[in-house]
């Protein structure tokens, strides 16, 4: 099926290229989605105070920290990819995009470990340790805190996965020098996913002392 990109797409009255403006609007709509979820969490967290602080102490702070590091690094790679694409170094841009995807992959692996170690502790600990430390299986229905934990990080994880798929497609095009402006656009999206994590990290992992 032939598709002709309309003239409208090439017009640029605001000075922001159309594709990028579209991505900014997507980011705006995502801000309010995550904003609503996190605002709800924040209010519940303040409401339940100590009770939830105890639960928050059970999240795996090291997994959270590694994932923050991984996402920051992948953000760095995607901005390098954008720079390389701007300088028309196609091979380099291709390389950096794939490094970003790899970062997303590591993030999802850590996430997988984190989820499974909560839901199925018997996968990682012997029966003896489980009984000694009193580790219990924690699922989304355990309490509202964990419902928020799995929902928020889960929605974020879906965004990471989606970004990885789109980036693979863009990397494929960028190698041939097609649609290079999309490298920057996916970069903006990826940074936004990173930004969400920057806020999820203190909310769920490190502020258990409050």
């Amino acid at each position: 099926m032939s598709f002709q990109i309309p003239i409208a797409t090439s017009r640029n009255l605001t000075g922001v290229p159309t594709g990028r403006l579209g991505v900014w609007w997507i980011v705006a709509s995502e801000i309010v989605i995550f904003g609503g979820l996190l605002a709800a969490f924040l209010m519940y967290r303040l409401h339940h105070g100590d009770e939830w602080a105890k639960e928050a102490g059970k999240t795996n702070i090291w997994c959270g920290s590694i994932n923050t590091f991984v996402l920051l690094t992948s953000s760095y790679f995607v901005v390098l990819a954008h720079k390389a694409a701007g300088e028309n170094k196609l091979q380099e841009a291709y390389k950096y995009i794939w490094w970003t995807i790899a970062g997303g992959g590591i993030f999802m692996c850590v996430k997988f470990y984190e989820y499974t170690s909560k839901i199925f502790p018997e996968w990682y600990y012997t029966q003896q340790i489980i009984e000694e430390k009193g580790i219990e299986s924690i699922t989304i229905t355990t309490s509202v805190f964990w419902a928020f934990y799995f929902t928020a990080t889960g929605i974020h994880g879906v965004h990471v996965l989606g970004g990885m798929v789109i980036m693979a497609i863009i990397a494929h095009d960028a190698k041939k020098g097609k649609f290079l402006h999309r490298v920057e656009n996916i970069g903006i999206y990826w940074h936004f996913v990173d930004l969400v994590w920057i806020f999820l990290f203190p909310l769920f992992y490190i502020a258990s002392g409050l």
Partner: peptide, 19 residues
């Protein structure tokens, strides 16, 4: 372009209003 910055700020502001 400042318009984008403005847009992001409005979204955040609305979340504050909601809160």
């Amino acid at each position: 372009n400042k318009i984008v910055w403005f847009l992001m700020a409005i979204c955040l502001l609305c979340m504050l209003v909601f809160l």
